[in-house]
Design a protein around this nucleic acid. Sequence first.
DNA 1: GATAATTAATTAGCAAGGCTAAGTAATAAT
DNA 2: ATTATTACTTAGCCTTGCTAATTAATTATC
Lengths: 148, 148
Amino acid sequence: MAQHSQLEHLADRLHSTSIHLLRLVRGQDTAAGIGPARLSALSVVVFGGPISLNDLARAEQVRPPTMSRIVDALEKDGLARRRVNAADRRAVVIETTARGARVLQEGRKRRVRMLAKSLSGLKRSELLQVERAVRTLQKALQRQSEQG
Amino acid sequence: MAQHSQLEHLADRLHSTSIHLLRLVRGQDTAAGIGPARLSALSVVVFGGPISLNDLARAEQVRPPTMSRIVDALEKDGLARRRVNAADRRAVVIETTARGARVLQEGRKRRVRMLAKSLSGLKRSELLQVERAVRTLQKALQRQSEQG
DNA sequence: GATAATTAATTAGCAAGGCTAAGTAATAAT
DNA sequence: ATTATTACTTAGCCTTGCTAATTAATTATC
């Protein structure tokens, strides 16, 4: 019972902390003229290389129509481009442009500057603690999304 | 230099972990017929008690018009109600209803069940580690949003 | 006490980003 | 050859963010 209630409380705080963290960086992202969904998708393409629309949607945990529109916007802004997959002409391959890679890095910089301001008050030991916890969480979340 | 790059990496992972965590619970929230913004605002009212619209907007880090519409939706669903502040008749006081408190608890349960599944693979020591990190982060984020 | 300035909330209207359902085109299977 | 499946897009809905402009109440000033 104490176990359950503690876990519930932790889940609540995790949720609320995530919400507030994202609201904090939101201003920076939109200042770049690129929203979080676009930035996140672009990041997958830049770091992971060319990828099909379906795979990108899966990676971002959104439905294909949603990703299709996000890619529309990225293309319109010259941050990514579609290419037909020659081997399977139903499929498209999404790849970044030089501009896309540059904008992504700038977005990261802005974001990290904002978060760094928040984290700068923390002691070295606290930073390490957060780092370890993030690694733990990522592992747990990934396991979850793989299973379903 | 190593410092900066480490901090940048941590910020990136914090950001991405937050996004993925929220996407994970999103399905559960919308299953309750209540979106994340409404749930979060309702939670402030339920746990913090009656509050003015402006203060609620500030607490949720959104603009008053955004909050006004969120409260509209909560009212329409019978989860909260507006009351005129007798002392200052420009202001409204938002308070929860019995149904609001109940729905919030149900939402929490659904969410915690989902997160618990993710966290259930963690050792007790890892849970404590995450708990400490969350507390640290909350402190840091709060300080940030107070300063601006 | 009347007028002006400020404050609290709302309304109107836009954009991003989530969804489902339905359509099109290409490939795979029968 | 026909049928089924697959990849993606289009159309249309909802939520949630914003700014600008409006309304109503309070506070400050003359």
